[in-house]
């Protein structure tokens, strides 16, 4: 009797083992996201969040006709592109170098991961100083090569580049390690036969490493895209007292910061929920586009 049951399964025990994960996830992960859509159809005041009035699609109508929304969408997009594309390329290069036989490889790996161990808040506060207009070290360095001081915070392009520097600094080492892990699971004989065929180092990288890394690269692209759409802490803290606007002229207000500004500075939680739900839809679309494009390109390439 017992043996037969064991063989078929373990009764209800497996469900009890996975239950805590799913219960907590359902209560604090899934439910709030879905409920965001419902809240976004209401007017809710931050100071009295337990009373809500049905407004239908009014929040969305206001959102899509708001210049601030389109501004934030554009900023999120440009910051996302300039902070992830170069970052992932650099990470790939670093991983390639780390994959050589190295002295002190643990040292290099740990050192490159230190920015990842630094919080968004700490990193942004340090870099805000480095990017200071009058006394920042970056302007001082630029001055050494004859470049005039840059007012990093006030320009759209300059501030967004400063932000993308912070994001790249924090994540490049982490992604390099992910790529390195992928590279190390490439069978060694692929390299050996490529070397026997007379492939140069660059050709090995291009025709052996990159194709083998495709799933890993797709994974990092998807994760970085999801992260880029939610960028929040960097612009908030880079802006100091005007952080919740994303700079005095909203020149680097992202969707995440707009959500915070509308909800917690203008007290409009329902409207902020509309921002959140819009971000969610954008993330789903972006992930789908990423994966389909990647699949199609690789199929054509193959």
């Amino acid at each position: 009797m017992f043996k037969a049951r064991r063989r078929a399964g373990q009764g209800s025990a497996p469900y009890l083992f996975v239950a805590p994960f799913f219960l907590v996830f359902a209560a604090f992960g899934l439910f709030p996201i879905l409920y965001t859509a419902w809240v976004s159809l209401h007017a809710v005041d931050l100071q009295n969040p337990n009373e809500s009035t049905w407004v239908g699609l009014e929040n969305y109508r206001k959102l899509f006709s708001s210049d601030f929304f389109w501004n934030a969408l554009e900023n999120t997009f440009t910051i996302g592109v300039i902070s992830t594309v170069p970052q992932l390329c650099i990470a790939l290069g670093i991983a390639h170098l780390l994959n050589y036989r190295l002295r002190g490889r643990t040292f290099f790996r740990v050192a490159m991961l230190m920015p990842y161990a630094t919080s968004v808040a700490a990193a942004t506060l340090v870099f805000s100083g480095l990017f200071g207009r009058d006394f920042g070290m970056i302007n001082w360095l630029l001055g050494q090569v004859g470049v005039n001081p840059v007012d990093w915070d006030s320009g759209r392009w300059t501030s967004q580049n400063a932000l993308s520097t912070i994001i790249t600094w924090r994540w490049v080492g982490y992604n390099a390690l992910i790529y390195l892990a992928g590279m190390q699971s490439v069978p060694a004989d692929l390299y050996e036969s490529a070397a026997i065929d007379g492939a140069s180092r660059w050709q090995q990288f291009r025709y052996v490493t990159i194709p083998s890394l495709r799933p890993t690269i797709l994974f990092t692209i998807v994760v970085s895209t999801i992260g880029a759409i939610q960028v929040f802490g960097e612009p908030l803290l880079f802006g100091g007292v005007s952080g919740h606007l994303g700079g005095a002229g909203r020149q680097y207000q992202t969707l995440g910061v707009l959500l915070y500004d509308e909800g917690w500075f203008n007290y409009k939680l329902g409207y902020a929920a509309a921002v959140a739900w819009t971000m969610f839809v954008i993330i789903v679309v972006a992930v789908l586009v990423n994966t389909t494009l990647a699949r199609r390109r690789w199929r054509n390439a193959a």
């Binding site: 399964g9 373990q10 497996p14 604090f28 439910f31 409920y35 939610q230």
Partner: peptide, 30 residues
């Protein structure tokens, strides 16, 4: 462990990695 929905539930778990929890912050706050 062998149980009926093992693969389905594990797939769901992996799927949740794609869901950004910070976007549920408003109902969570309420």
């Amino acid at each position: 462990l062998r149980f009926r929905f093992n693969n389905l539930l594990f797939g769901l778990t992996l799927g949740t990695m794609m869901i950004p929890p910070s976007l549920g912050a408003i109902p969570l706050y309420m």
